[in-house]
Design a binder for these strands. Structure first.
Length: 548
RNA sequence: GGCCUAUUAGUCAAGGGGUUUAAGACGCCACUCUCUCAAGGUGGAAUCACGGGUUCGAAUCCCGUAUGGGCUACCA
């Protein structure tokens, strides 16, 4: 009995060879310098801000020169798979307009691209052909170590302060004669397939990562599992090798946590004599927790999940800008010079990327978002709030649809000017800043007139309605009338006078306008009163002032 | 423990031997403008982890130390 018998026993149905697959996945026909990138999440049902960083960079790179950005579903760990996860990822990518060129969406029965399947569990035979090849060549072997045995190996290694893993003398089945392996398999013993590592731990090799530059690692000498006993699917490392080779990925963008697997990937590619893709290991997004930092966590940090940004109603533009700022810190300066360019026009440089982790700064995002919203037209703001509300606040959406022009007037307050007003950060807060403009919400309101005397409040409001409110006034006329009223009622119309001789007055113009403001909106902080009154219109103004 | 890797203000960071009394952005503080708020304007506080070298000269190069982070699964 020989290795061929073993290989056929393990993979009786695998008849294609790796040469067959090489032919099925020919080199891509792309222009010089075009990059092929991939977004390869595992379908765990959420999308992390770190995933987003990778996706944005992938997209940016691929779009640079008519390359390809494809989506690959890494579902080799089926115990972690969550229903609907791929649809969710598709929706997030679509929301941010990062649609892949090649993909496979099972739920809507859509597949695009010639390098599929793009779902790993559908590529089982492909991986197995590659593994079979390795077994035939004596470069992989079945390992019959049980979970308990491995646990005790790890424990003893930890105790003796040795490196952990199945290597050297711990690789008990590495040199098991083929006959015995066959016998064990026929006996029904469980096994995993391990790589028969050729590496020497004491030997170092140099590796160039586009983000981190040159690094030195010891060779891998661990007989890593490449196929799981549980479902016959490959481990991440092996799938990475096969897929990125066959799909002709040119650039692998992934988190820093993968750097430590480079020795493994290096050996794997060398074993098949495949060309390695270029790697860009991107910084981990960290979070400050007390006085230490840690990897941002979907469980502890709401902002780790992309759903957070959608629920808050951050414009997608702002989120991408913030992410690009993390990707390359010179992005902001570039943006200043190219205010209208698409982010893919930016010359992203992996070298300029920070190689350690980065804290994600919500303040920064807020600032970007605020600036962005302030430069939209009123129509764009309306569209954005409406879209958000349709999803998260149907009641408000209905009101918006009922009063489109009125709503846009509200969004236009202090907007069409060189330095526009900046008071919205994200769409979800617009309602809380404008609800009082709608009669539907302005019902049964309670006023808080601070410590103003109600007699004075009523006097001011009544006097104002009776004598000083003229809807058709210009802003200057309007303001002059208020000043006039202040003088008559004993309030200072000039703040300097008031500051100098506050005892001579009952209060100041600030008190008067605030009282009107509160009566109209319940808030003492609002945008420009004159604008509000113009938009509310005479009927509402009079009604609200009288209702107090 | 082992392997990788990093360390410039609260955050993201520029700077790779002299042009740096260390950019810029966000945040913070103060003042100012002002009918409140949001903006705007002006100004301010705040950073080269530590110790040794190399050098006329070090944030920058070298060596240690400390600290942070990642990995060390039949998870990706």
């Amino acid at each position: 009995m020989n290795r061929e018998d073993l290989a056929n026993l393990i993979f009786p149905d695998i008849t294609k060879t790796i040469e067959d697959y090489e032919k099925e996945y020919p080199k891509r026909n792309l222009e010089e310098g075009a990059m092929v990138t991939r977004f390869a999440p595992s379908p765990t049902g959420f999308m992390h801000i770190g995933h987003m960083l990778a996706a944005v960079i992938d997209y940016c790179l691929a779009k640079k020169k008519n390359g390809v950005f494809y989506l690959r579903n890494e579902d080799t760990d089926q115990s972690r798979e969550v229903e609907g996860a791929v649809e969710y990822i598709r929706s997030v990518l679509a929301h941010y307009d990062l649609n892949p060129d090649e993909y496979e969406y099972r739920d809507i029965n859509e597949i695009k691209g010639n390098y599929g399947p793009y779902i790993q569990s559908e590529r089982k035979e492909i991986y197995q052909a590659f593994i079979k090849h390795l077994i035939l060549e004596g470069k992989a072997y079945p390992c019959f170590l049980t979970q308990e045995e491995m646990d005790s190996i790890r424990e003893s290694q930890a105790k003796d302060k040795r490196r952990i893993g199945i290597y050297g003398r711990y690789a008990k089945y590495r040199n098991l004669p083929v006959e015995e392996a066959i016998k064990k398999i026929k006996n029904g013993e469980k096994y995993t397939i391990r790589l028969k590592s050729n590496g020497e731990f004491s030997r170092k090799f140099k590796f160039n990562d586009l983000a981190n530059g040159e690094m030195e690692f010891p060779e891998n000498d661990i007989d890593i599992p490449i196929m799981k006993s549980s479902n016959g699917l490959p481990t991440y490392h092996f799938a990475h090798l096969v897929d990125d080779h066959l799909m002709h990925t040119t650039h692998v963008v992934r988190g820093q946590e993968w750097i430590s697997s480079i020795p493994v990937h290096y050996e794997l590619f060398k074993t098949f004599n495949f060309k390695m893709p270029k790697y860009i290991h991107i910084p981990l997004i960290l979070k400050k927790d007390g006085d230490h930092v840690r990897k941002i966590s979907k469980r502890l940090d709401p902002e780790a999940k992309m759903s957070f940004y959608e629920e808050k109603g951050y414009p997608t533009y702002a989120v991408i800008e913030a992410i690009m700022t993390i990707a390359n810190s010179n992005y902001e300066a570039w943006r200043e010079g190219h205010p209208d360019a698409h982010f893919t026009e930016f010359e992203f440089s992996p070298k300029k990327m920070s190689s350690s982790g980065a804290l994600f700064d919500l303040d920064k995002l807020n600032n970007i978002s605020k600036n962005y919203l302030s430069h939209l037209t009123k129509e764009e703001v309306y569209k954005g709030v409406l879209a958000w509300s349709e999803k998260y606040d149907q009641e408000f959406a209905n009101i918006l649809k009922k009063y489109p022009d009125y709503s846009m007037q509200i969004y236009n307050i202090e907007r069409e000017q060189k330095k526009p007003r900046k008071d919205y950060i994200y769409y979800s807060e617009i309602k809380s800043k404008t609800w009082y403009m709608y009669d539907e919400y302005f019902k049964d309101v309670t006023y808080n007139f601070l410590d103003y005397n109600m007699q004075d409040v009523k006097l001011i409001l009544n006097t104002y309605i009776d004598q000083y409110y003229h809807e058709e006034d210009s802003q200057d006329e309007w303001f002059n009338r208020i000043k006039e009223m202040c003088d008559i009622l004993g309030y200072a119309s000039n703040m300097k006078d008031y500051k100098e001789n506050s005892n001579n007055y009952k209060g100041s113009i600030v008190d008067v306008t605030n009282i009107i403001r509160i009566a109209l909106t319940t808030f003492s902080n609002t945008p420009n009163l004159y604008d509000l009154m113009q938009i509310l219109g005479k009927e509402r103004v009079v009604e609200r002032l009288q209702n107090v």
